[in-house]
Design a protein around this nucleic acid. Structure first.
Lengths: 357, 357
DNA sequence: AACGCAAATGATAGCGCAACCATTGTGCTT
DNA sequence: AAGCACAATGGTTGCGCTATCATTTGCGTT
């Protein structure tokens, strides 16, 4: 039907027909001509309708509708150097963690008339640099990016960009501009404390992907155990692979095999791994929580409903997205923000999987 | 540090300094001056490097890097009427179904140098119309949208857009342009056949959100039972709320309560609902699959790992995204496509939750 | 009645880039 | 040695819109 009909354009019989209907994109000027006003007035009807008298406004709007005019955002952005675009860079599209943050971002940005240009960095700082370059070429008015492990070059042109930037997910010592996140290390530490408090002794660790935030959780785990003289590096099992329920089951099996079952608790860096471990434990007829505690991270919905229910660390992902987006909007509107750094906190949801009877 | 330093601009001491470093955005012309070539040559170095001699290319590239030049995509798009943007409209960001389709789309589009502008229509045709209008104002070179229930107005300007468009998720009788999906009605029909084949008799239905595709699954369910004279509308429990594990549990309880437990199988329109029903059944001490079969839809990862494993309908979501993106790319490159309509099919993954011993 | 002031509308220029066509230079053919 | 093809580079123009600065109109003030 459509799609690349360059040919059709060339077939036009010389310069005969003025312009075949719907052949050419209609512009502001077309609308202006059709409604008998100047181009700038049409522009105002679209962008500052309150500055145009009601009669004219209606008249112009009628022309816009009947012609099916759709403004060219590129021309508008070029002329006004306002793109109404916010760039967002996340490491993975398929991770529910980021999906929910995104939801928060979209909610706020949509309500404020901003489009979101989203890129996926695949957990690679180099890819991230490339992607952020792409984002910047769209002249975004603000940027939301994940974590703090940008390349030097990237930090460099980010600083020069002169737009509000929020780094999300983790708390950074020295953010580029603004920062919203929570303390992954402390969360890991607190999880261990909780397990110890429940009377578990030999606490294993299961991790996948091992991105910076997962590493921090592991450091917290390590620190807590070291402080009690209970750290044993043999109880740590990790893989660079992405997390999944399947991987969780495999890592759990491998942990149990390599430790001959001395482990009586497992801290999984996310709920997928934890569910995998739980399901695998059930298949191995290990009694959770009597013989084994399992703790996850992120508190996805399934954690509360699975049997036995899964202890997990709840973090306000949606709220984090909302907060980050809101900070950008506030800065763009020159409203004050309380702080450049926001700690969203977390909460350990204590459930059956870590409660010895 | 940065963020809205308009003030700084005005503070500039008259016209003293030529231009404070990094005060003004640097453009193609700046790069041209810095490297002693014309603007158009710089443009070529960026867009058609093979047309520039190696020596010049290196020289220009050096200037680009040292100045930290980032092209203005709006100007480029305006001048060339090529945006390198593909618009994507999905009904929900938080639904894993769409997330995986998105992954496929991003994969292909990224590899081909296209950016993705993503909007969320919240399952509302009116919102969709607004959002697609927004997309079109970015002059995307192609569009991927969900389903076929666009408003008349929307269909209208979509048809006029003269760009390749793929409608995804479901099979449409009369697509706007191209179409990739699978037959939801037939899938629902086949699920019932499978349950009957396993010896289950009274098959309930649990549905949430009830978007067009869920409705089609329900119609398939209904048709199959009607053909066997076993349809009973009292066995259908639905809600307009979004799906979730929690809602699945609630609907299951309500189904069991209203039917006094005569139901011996439940078809849930997605796996979240099915997991909710399964977990709830476990809490009610109902034996799955002996006393009750549960079948989900989408085959999310948990389905294969939960105990008992959950029968579900597997659909190639990632592949659907890849396919849709690939069709767009092919059309843009004027390569042939096999067909305007592609049926991705589906497969019922028969697992323990529907296998009577 | 003359003035001023604000609201409503218009004319002009330019945002940064690439399309288009022109020009120059290089190496080859005959 | 003259001619030619083609690769490499540059000048000019305009994409569609909005910022900026006029200009016009209406209306209240003294």
């Amino acid at each position: 039907m459509l799609a690349k009909n360059n040919s059709q354009v060339q077939i036009l019989p010389m310069k005969t027909a003025k312009k075949r209907l719907s052949e050419k994109k209609i512009t502001l000027v077309d609308v202006a001509n059709a409604s008998g006003v100047s181009a700038i007035t049409v522009s105002r009807v679209i962008n500052q309708p309150e500055k145009v008298s009601e009669s004219l406004r209606i008249q112009v709007q009628k022309a816009i509708d009947s012609l099916g005019y759709i403004p060219n955002q590129h021309a508008s952005s070029l002329a006004s150097s306002k793109s109404r675009v916010i760039g967002v860079a996340i490491p993975s599209l398929s991770n529910i963690v980021f999906t929910e943050v995104l939801r928060g971002i979209y909610e706020v940005m949509g309500a404020n008339g901003y489009k979101v240009l989203l890129v996926d960095t695949h957990y690679s700082p180099l890819e991230e640099e490339k992607m952020i370059r792409t984002l910047l070429s769209q002249s975004p008015e603000g940027l939301i990016i994940t974590g703090g492990d940008q390349t030097k070059a990237c930090q460099n042109f980010l600083t020069k960009a002169r737009i509000p930037i929020v780094q999300i997910m983790e708390l950074l010592a020295d953010p580029i501009d603004m920062n919203v996140g929570f303390a992954h290390g402390r969360a890991g530490y607190d999880v261990v404390k909780h397990l110890i408090g429940q009377g578990y002794e030999r606490i294993g660790f299961i991790g996948a992907r091992m991105d910076p935030r997962v590493q921090q959780r592991m450091q917290g785990y390590k620190l807590a155990l070291e402080q009690m003289g209970k750290f044993d590096k043999n109880l740590i099992v990790t893989t660079p692979e992405p997390s999944s329920i399947g991987v969780g089951g495999e890592l759990f099996k491998s942990l149990m095999a390599s430790t001959n079952g001395v482990v009586d608790a497992v801290f999984c860096v996310n709920d997928d791994l934890a569910l995998g471990a739980l399901f695998e434990a059930q298949r191995m007829n290990i009694n959770v929580p009597q013989d084994l505690a399992i703790c996850g991270f992120n508190d996805i919905e399934a954690a509360a409903y699975v049997n036995p229910s899964l202890t997990s660390v709840s973090v306000g992902r949606y709220e984090m997205g909302v907060k980050a987006a809101d900070m950008i909007i506030r800065v763009l509107n020159e409203k004050p923000i309380e702080s450049r750094k926001v700690d969203m906190g977390y909460e350990i949801k204590k459930r059956v999987s870590t409660s010895r009877l």
